[in-house]
């Protein structure tokens, strides 16, 4: 899969982020995905407005000294798309709303 830096990503319409003592989980209608590390934080940035580049920039600002950050984030985003946990939004589509904490 190629990663287009202008691709805008959002949670699928029926997804929700939940937080528990063991970590955060992305919940889909018939499926739940445990999010390791900063997974939930990255997903929260995928609001349908930011494109991939903006997601990278936001994270790079927060974690300035992390090597390989961009590569890992890209891998995570691509994996999430494959699992149905993220969708590319076409321009003009309303942003997905995730549930409040």
């Amino acid at each position: 899969m190629t990663s287009d830096p202008k691709e805008r990503l959002a949670l699928p319409r029926h997804a929700a982020l939940k937080h528990r003592h063991h970590g955060s989980v992305l919940v889909l209608p018939e499926h739940a995905i445990r999010l390791a590390g900063s997974g939930a934080e990255i997903l929260a940035l995928c609001d349908g407005e930011r494109d991939r580049r903006a997601v990278h920039e936001a994270l790079a600002a927060r974690y300035p000294d992390t090597d390989e950050l961009a590569v890992e984030v890209d891998r995570f985003l691509t994996e999430m798309i494959e699992m149905g946990g993220l969708e590319a939004v076409s321009p003009g589509t309303a942003a997905a709303v995730s549930e409040p904490k």
């Binding site: 939940k18 528990r20 003592h21 063991h22 989980v25 919940v27 739940a32």
Partner: peptide
């Protein structure tokens, strides 16, 4: 169940 970690 929720306290135990269930989300769905």
């Amino acid at each position: 169940a929720s306290r135990l970690g269930v989300v769905h």
